[in-house]
Write a protein that binds this DNA or RNA. Structure first.
Length: 542
RNA sequence: UGGGCUAUGGCCAAGCGGUUAAGGCAUCGGACUUUGACUCCGAGAUCGGAAGUUCAAAUCUUCCUAGCCCAGCCA
């Protein structure tokens, strides 16, 4: 990882002796699946700590049972494991409910917290606005005994939701809204995924988080920019609760990607409205979706690292993510032949029943991947887009009427005739091949007008290709999300793959030559082959 | 005169008073090529603006401008 401001801070803290070990934590709220934006937080927390031989905890931030669900904690754990990280500890905010209750009592005893009877509307009024100060709650000066009594009765369930809150007594005139007597405990008669019905009061994030960090010995508590002005509150709680260990919060900018929805709320809406097939739909920017689509953990790490870390909310172009996948897979993966949109070609001068098997390395740039044989015969399929009747210009490096191209790893073929149906659609090409031009023969008399890939008709296997594009197409507006959806985000095409791939297994990755990187989908089987196009190849054409 | 944060090529991002201002993505040239892929060469910024401090400033100061965040009993 290259230099960034947090890494610099850690180096300095280690050097000055402020800390002797870096301890970070990743604190997701289990209220949805993790997305690529979270990957920045995960990867930075783990990599930074690891860089200094420190450690990282996973702590589920489950202080609001109305949002959270066990299924999400499981999904989050799977994703982190997939990325290859092992938390030093797996914890829950709810593990600290007893301690935080005691600390709240401590604040009351110190005269720094009070039970408030204002309802939500009243509290909003009393809070003031961005430009006007707030005014003190009439309950602000209850005596300590009364506060203690009321708070224990809140805990005991004597009051209804919203009837009372516990608030920190700070400063209603502070220009920082967070300091205007923030609520630290609210009443919620809601069952918790971890603690069941033990509690009916739950701590707020601003109170719970610093305490948990302190209790856990976190040294560098990383979060996103919007918590910047919560930091004084964070420090206030650590100080007033007299925490032995003093953690520090550092904020970094969020990562956005062009054409990508990065909001939990929207992702949930897409799933709930059935606009996608669940959180792991291959079009989703969730880690689970990216995995299914074919992204590797290595590519995601490279992307995050290469994107850096700063105090700017950045929007990186999606090409950068795609590039990281291509870089990772280029030498790593088999390169095979697949025809996604087939056009039948008959080689009229090739024997009727003959099939030739030609030995071809899987990846000429990585011999370790071995080789297989590809078939050639009288009938083959090429990509429909690789043929045009009349060669439009000298740049056209594919087939055309009267033009000769090389079928990769096989022979030169020349197109002599185009067969069309009554609507004028091309249904078949009649070509001739030249025996002398066999690949590897050293034939050098003529140059073909390009090289195109193909698949032999009788030996190839039918396959479905999922051609995935961004879910979001309309970048410029603040329009409703559903109006910005790309109607072509998932186009399906039926074509053929070479025989050697017929036993491919779920998640196996390939480069289909000239067509892009593909991954065998979870639902694929030998009888029903399905591939997801992860990304296309780069192209200078067009 | 609410408060906080940010500003380096199209997009990210190093840089922390003295370097020809790293690198990646994108773009544009060119070489190579049985993938219009890969690879390889080559091209581009004086650092939001204005003043100031200094022998010397992207790096320090001041003012200005623009953008983002904050008025949940969400996180």
């Amino acid at each position: 990882m290259e230099s960034n401001f947090i890494k610099t801070i850690m180096e300095e803290d280690l050097k000055s002796g402020k800390v002797d070990k870096i301890v970070t934590r990743f604190p997701p709220e289990p209220s949805a699946y993790l997305h690529i934006g979270h990957a920045r937080a995960i990867i930075m927390n783990f990599e930074l700590a690891d860089n200094f031989n420190g450690r990282t905890n996973l702590r589920f931030d489950d202080t609001n049972p109305s949002n959270e669900d066990k299924s999400f904690v499981d999904a989050i754990q799977r994703d982190i494991e997939w990325l290859g990280y092992k938390p030093a500890k797996i914890l829950f905010g709810s593990d600290y409910f007893d301690e935080s209750y005691e600390l709240a009592v401590k604040l009351i005893r110190k005269g720094l917290a009070y039970v408030c009877d204002l309802n939500a509307d009243e509290m909003r009024e009393y809070r003031g606005t961005l430009t006007t100060t707030g005014k003190e709650s009439p309950y602000r000066n209850r005596n300590i005994e009364e506060n203690l009594d009321l708070f224990s009765r809140m805990k005991a369930g004597e009051f209804k939701d919203g009837e009372k809150t516990l608030r920190a007594k700070i400063d209603m005139t502070s220009p920082n809204m967070n300091m205007r007597d923030p609520v630290i405990y609210r009443i919620m008669h809601t069952e918790h995924q971890n603690t069941g019905n033990k509690w009916c009061i739950y701590p707020m994030y601003d109170f719970a988080h610093p305490i948990q960090d302190a209790l856990e010995g976190i040294t560098h508590s990383l979060c996103s920019l919007e918590y910047d002005d919560h930091r004084v509150l964070y420090d206030w709680f650590v100080e007033k609760c007299e925490m032995e260990h003093v953690p520090h919060q550092y904020e970094f900018g969020r990562l956005n990607i062009t054409n990508t929805i990065m909001s939990k709320r929207y992702l949930k809406k897409l799933v709930e409205a059935n606009k996608v097939n669940g959180f792991d739909d291959p079009r989703m920017p969730t880690l689970a979706g990216l995995k299914r689509r074919g992204f590797t953990k290595e590519s995601i790490k490279e992307f995050i690292i290469s994107t850096g870390l700063s105090r700017v909310n950045s929007t990186v172009s999606s090409e950068m993510l795609e590039n990281s996948l291509r870089n990772d897979l280029n030498y790593k993966v088999k390169r095979s032949h697949a025809v996604i949109d087939p056009l039948k070609v008959t080689i009229t001068n090739y024997p009727e029943d003959k099939i030739e098997w030609i030995e071809v390395p899987y990846n000429p740039q990585n011999e370790a991947l071995g080789s297989r044989k590809i078939a050639f015969g009288r009938t083959v399929y090429i990509e429909r887009e690789d043929f045009i009747e009349e060669k439009p210009n000298k740049k056209w490096k594919r087939l055309a009427l009267g033009i000769e191209v090389r079928l990769m790893r096989a022979y030169f073929i020349k197109c002599n005739e185009v067969i069309k149906d009554k609507d004028g659609n091309i249904t078949e090409l009649l070509c001739t091949y030249d025996l002398e031009t066999k690949s590897g023969s050293g034939f050098n008399e003529r140059k073909p007008n390009g090289n195109i890939h193909f698949v032999e008709a009788t030996t190839s296997k039918p396959a479905t290709f999922n051609l995935l594009e961004p879910l979001l197409i309309d970048s410029d507006s603040k329009k409703d999300l559903f109006e910005r959806l790309n109607p072509n985000s998932w186009v399906t095409s039926v074509g053929f793959i070479e025989k050697a791939l017929e036993s491919t297994k779920s998640e196996e990755k390939f480069q289909f030559i000239r067509k892009g990187y593909f991954t065998t989908d979870y639902d694929s089987s030998k009888e029903n082959l399905i591939f997801n196009r992860t990304v296309e190849l780069k192209s200078r054409f067009k």
